[in-house]
């Protein structure tokens, strides 16, 4: 009887953990999708609001603000293929992009987008901060 209760408790705990992990992955994935939707819809200001402060700052160049710069990168996302979360960092693989996010108290913000893999080296990203 005790073994049965322990087993049920363990399975509930593991299922709960899996549930948390998948909800977290969903949140990070949605943040990546919202960013790409804003870019695809030409809403530069909205896209920049989904970037980390450092990433938004990195796009500001002379007269060109973040909103203009983020649209000029011709980023393209697509459907989510995979999401991984480790600590406060996330990587979301979309059909045509790999997006890196960081968890802030207010939620997930994009710190890297328009990223190309370079083997063991860090990804080369159009938006990076």
């Amino acid at each position: 009887m005790n073994r049965k209760i322990t087993f049920i408790a363990t399975m509930s705990f593991l299922t709960g953990l899996a549930g948390c992990a998948s909800a977290e992955q969903g949140d990070a994935g949605q943040a990546a999708e919202r960013f790409h939707s804003a870019v695809a819809g030409g809403q530069g200001e909205q896209a920049c609001a989904l970037l980390t402060p450092r990433a938004a700052e990195s796009l500001q160049n002379g007269d060109q603000g973040c909103a203009q710069a983020v649209l000029s990168l011709n980023l393209s996302g697509g459907a989510i293929r995979q999401a991984e979360i480790w600590g406060d960092e996330a990587q979301v693989r979309l059909e045509r992009d790999t997006v890196f996010l960081h968890r802030f108290p207010q939620g997930w913000l994009v710190r890297g987008a328009g990223c190309q893999a370079r083997g063991d080296l860090p990804y080369d990203c159009g938006v990076e901060g």
Binding site: E84, W86, E89, Q91, G112, P122
Partner: peptide, 11 residues
Amino acid sequence: NAEQLARMQDP
């Protein structure tokens, strides 16, 4: 893996 992602590398 958290450090890998922070450096924009694959986990």
